[in-house]
């Protein structure tokens, strides 16, 4: 599978460096390595979700109990979670770090991903969520650290888009 194991590990290590102890996830193709890394890590609690919005609630509870967390999901899972993000994370000032696989953007071959891809950035913008793209391996550690810093200082959701350039290695 041409999902980048090396870059997934970079992202995962950056999450650990940012103090993440609870990871919630709804697996999708681009997230397989990240989810497995969390699964194999005895120092991290991984919670696989039935639906992404649950992860917003779980991150809220973890934060209130003093633990840092990250929510891993596809952009369609983000779209699914909008009410939870607004009515739980934003209403209650929760530092929710979201790592969102950026499906349906440039280079996407799957027709079913493309409608969500068109609106992901605009929905993030409409919600007032600060976001950045993780595109270059060299910048991942710094970007994840800064995203967590902003989430914690602003007590707000912050999103990092896992781009195709970072996550996908085209077969030779």
């Amino acid at each position: 599978m041409p999902v980048s194991a090396g870059n997934s590990k970079l992202v995962y290590d950056a999450l650990l460096d940012a103090g993440v102890e609870v990871v919630t996830a709804l697996p999708e193709t681009w997230l397989v390595h990240l989810v497995r890394l969390a699964e194999d890590d005895p120092g991290v609690t991984l919670i696989r979700l039935a639906k992404e919005e649950e992860g917003v609630g779980i991150s809220t509870g973890a934060h209130l109990a003093g633990k840092r967390s990250a929510l891993l999901m596809q952009n369609h899972g983000f779209l699914q979670s909008v009410n939870g993000i607004v009515s739980c994370a934003q209403l209650y000032k929760i530092p929710l770090l979201m790592l969102i696989s950026d499906r349906g953007h440039l280079g996407e071959r799957d027709p079913w991903q493309t409608e969500g891809g068109k609106v992901t950035r605009r929905v993030l913008d409409a919600l007032g969520i600060v976001f950045d793209e993780l595109g270059h391996p060299d910048a991942v550690a710094s970007q994840v650290a800064k995203a967590m810093t902003l989430a914690q200082s602003s007590l707000s959701p912050v999103a990092l888009l896992l781009t195709r350039d970072l996550m996908w290695e085209e077969p030779a």
Partner: peptide, 19 residues
Amino acid sequence: LEHAMGLASSVGLGVAVAD
């Protein structure tokens, strides 16, 4: 949890695993 209907059990799960 005064809004986000449905998520109280998820919030409770988050507290429970964190503490």
